[in-house]
Amino acid sequence: IREYLENAHRDIYEVKQLRLAICNPKEEIKGVVDLYDFDPYHKRAGVGIAILKEADRTKGFATAGLELLIEYAFKHLRLHQLYATISEDNLSSRILFEKLSFRESGIKKDWIATEKSYKNEHFYQLINE
């Protein structure tokens, strides 16, 4: 995060990532939404999102933040697609991305090591047609 903040003034085309705060109407930060692995040649980027406090989840902040990021990515950056990787047990994120028309296109088997075993990671894409 420190490295990102030191480079926050630089353009997405230069640093290949963008982090934006998700705020409520009182301008209190409720979470963050990211574009990462930005590839202007192939016109794609990865998407990450986090709502910081448990009490702020399921209140629409993630949906609103992700909707704005999608609009920005497709209209202003002219991307062809966005993608996200989501752990199999993160059902709320999987539901969120599916609600916003991301479609699962693959599963990375045994991708995330845990103390006792491995978890699968689901790969989602939203293609701007």
Rank of each mutant, 00 (worst) to 15 (best):
E14H: 11
R78V: 13
L82Y: 02
E121R: 07
Y124Q: 07
E6H: 08
H122V: 14
L126C: 07
V15T: 04
A84V: 09
A73S: 14
E28C: 03
A64G: 05
I22D: 02
K43I: 04
L126A: 05
H9A: 04
K26L: 15
Q81R: 12
V33D: 05
K75V: 14
H80A: 09
L18H: 03
F61Q: 01
L100G: 13
A73H: 10
L66M: 13
T85D: 12
G46F: 00
T114D: 14
E3W: 04
V15S: 01
L91H: 04
I49G: 00
F38T: 03
S105H: 00
G60W: 09
A64S: 10
L18F: 07
N24V: 06
N7T: 10
G60H: 06
I112G: 03
L96Q: 06
F123N: 01
N120E: 08
S93F: 07
A73Q: 09
I1C: 04
H9E: 06
K53A: 05
L20I: 08
G46R: 01
E98A: 08
K119R: 15
H76K: 02
L69D: 09
N90K: 05
Y13S: 11
Q125G: 03
R94W: 09
H76Q: 08
E28N: 02
G48V: 07
K16V: 02
L126F: 12
G31L: 05
N128E: 11
I107G: 00
H42S: 15
K30T: 02
Y118L: 15
E88M: 11
I1R: 07
E27G: 00
F97M: 10
E54M: 00
D39E: 14
N7M: 04
L69I: 10
A84E: 10
K43M: 13
T114Y: 15
H122K: 13
V32W: 06
K108P: 01
H9C: 03
I107S: 02
S93I: 08
N90Q: 11
G65K: 03
S105W: 02
E3F: 05
N90P: 06
